[in-house]
Structure formats: structure tokens, C-alpha cells
Amino acid sequence: MAKVLLVDDEANIIDVSKRYLERDGFQVITASDGEEAMCLWRTEAPDLLVLDLMMPKKDGFQVFQEIRHEDDVPIIILTARCEEMDRLVGLTMGADDYLTKPFSPRELVLRAQTILRRVAIGRGKKPTSFDQLKYGPLHIDSDKRMVQINQQLINLTAKEFDLLWLLASHPKQVFSRNQLLERIWDFEYEGDTTTVTVHIRRLREKIEELPSKPRYIQTVWGIGYKFEGDDDS
């Protein structure tokens, strides 16, 4: 599990970004100022930093320079929309990527996955397996958003894929219908949980040999759903 150090002095950015990263399999530690970030970097040895440039006590530029002096850990910088020069300076200093506030937390997750995969390949290591899952004949590729069964492509809608990926990347973990609504239809979504039931039914019809006796997506009566299967990846 890749570890991310998320550094920002805005509590709402920390909260939402942390939840999105964690739901996609990252371990997340957080800091709200530059001094705390330096302490956590030394003690936790994260695989990736997400670093705001404008912070109290010690700003992101100082943190960036101190870390880069000792380590080549990948860094994504966060900047406000008006700070174009800061972005250019950050990239010149050696940042791996940047995001402009306000940003989509989903985009942050995708940027983090891409950078860590690229770093792993560059160091001659097998890329972290958070982008691909294999359960028997079922193969799920998050990077390509592709699902295959016995090497046959299965066409899923965007929500069906997101739902399958969430369940399959957390095998045996039980999710309530409300939790699935929050995670797949965003945290602010207000809707009927039958939306989840309908999507689960459609998903089973596409990936299960016998939808009435599902192998993969199991119903936990009175609670919600979980994914079952032996990971062959």
C-alpha cells in the first residue's frame, strides 16, 4: 500500500482528498503546516508528497527545497489559481506534477497513481498493483477502465465500473448502500439507495455467470454488499 503525505492548511481540502485517496487504496498521513510536514516526512518515509505551497510556520517552498536536498520522493504541488509563477518555480525546482485549486479529488487520485506507477517503472520495479486486479477469469484494469472475463471485453457504464472497482479493490469488506452512494455518487449525493440496488443488479448481469447465484458480488442481508474471490494477480 502506497503511503501519501498530504500537506495543506485548509481542513476541507485535507478531509476530502484524504477520503478519496484512502478509498482507492492509499495510506494517507496529513500535516497542516510545513514544520509538521518535515517531521512526518522523516518519521513516516512516504512514497509521495502532496504539498501546498502557501502554509504557515514553514512554507511549501522551504519544505520542498529541504526534502529535495535529501530525497527524490515524488511531489505533487498544490497552488492557487492566481499563482502561475509559483507553479512554474515549483516545476523548475523538480516537482513531478501540480494541481491548481480548486481541484477535483478524483484527479488527484489519478495523478498520484500515474506518478507512482511511472516511478516504479523508472526504478526497475513492478508497478504497484492498485491499477489492476485479477480474480479467476475476471480482470479489472483501473488505468484503462477495462473489464474482461476470460479475455472477453465487458462493457460497463462509468458508474458500474466505479462500483465494481471499489468492491473488488476491498475484497470481503462489507459496504452499506449508503456508503456506496457516498463513494460512487460523491459525498454530497442525496438520493435513494435503490440506485445502488439497480446498479448492482445490472453489474451482476454483466459479470456473473449466474446472476441469481453470484460468485463475486455477494449480498450481506440487512447491510449491503461485499466482493468475494481469490485474487490471482
Results as ranks from 00 to 15, higher is better:
31 A>E: 07
37 A>S: 11
22 E>V: 05
18 K>T: 14
31 A>V: 06
53 L>D: 03
48 L>D: 02
21 L>G: 07
16 V>P: 01
55 M>P: 04
29 I>N: 12
58 K>W: 09
41 W>L: 14
46 P>G: 06
28 V>M: 07
15 D>L: 12
34 G>L: 12
58 K>Q: 14
33 D>Q: 08
58 K>T: 13
20 Y>W: 13
32 S>C: 13
52 D>L: 02
47 D>F: 04
17 S>V: 03
55 M>G: 01
16 V>I: 14
42 R>M: 10
22 E>W: 05
46 P>D: 08
56 P>V: 01
24 D>V: 00
39 C>W: 13
47 D>V: 01
40 L>H: 12
19 R>C: 08
55 M>R: 05
24 D>W: 03
20 Y>E: 08
17 S>M: 02
33 D>I: 03
33 D>V: 04
29 I>R: 14
57 K>N: 09
23 R>S: 11
48 L>Y: 04
41 W>G: 05
22 E>G: 03
23 R>P: 00
22 E>A: 10
17 S>P: 09
54 M>T: 02
23 R>T: 07
55 M>Y: 01
20 Y>M: 08
43 T>S: 14
28 V>S: 06
18 K>H: 07
29 I>P: 00
33 D>F: 06
28 V>C: 06
28 V>H: 06
45 A>G: 00
55 M>W: 02
42 R>G: 02
47 D>C: 01
45 A>Y: 12
44 E>I: 00
34 G>I: 10
48 L>Q: 06
24 D>A: 01
33 D>N: 15
29 I>L: 15
29 I>H: 12
44 E>H: 08
42 R>T: 05
23 R>W: 02
35 E>H: 13
32 S>I: 14
43 T>K: 10
38 M>D: 09
36 E>W: 12
56 P>H: 04
48 L>K: 06
50 V>I: 12
39 C>D: 15
49 L>R: 05
47 D>G: 02
28 V>P: 00
33 D>G: 03
21 L>C: 09
42 R>A: 11
49 L>H: 08
53 L>S: 02
21 L>K: 10
50 V>G: 02
47 D>S: 06
32 S>R: 15
19 R>N: 13
27 Q>K: 14
48 L>W: 03
49 L>P: 03
23 R>V: 06
19 R>E: 15
40 L>S: 09
23 R>L: 07
46 P>L: 10
50 V>T: 04
39 C>Y: 15
30 T>M: 10
32 S>L: 12
27 Q>A: 12
34 G>H: 11
55 M>F: 03
17 S>C: 10
26 F>M: 03
32 S>D: 13
43 T>H: 09
25 G>R: 02
18 K>P: 00
20 Y>K: 14
25 G>N: 01
55 M>L: 11
27 Q>V: 11
40 L>V: 05
24 D>T: 02
53 L>N: 02
55 M>S: 04
32 S>G: 12
35 E>R: 15
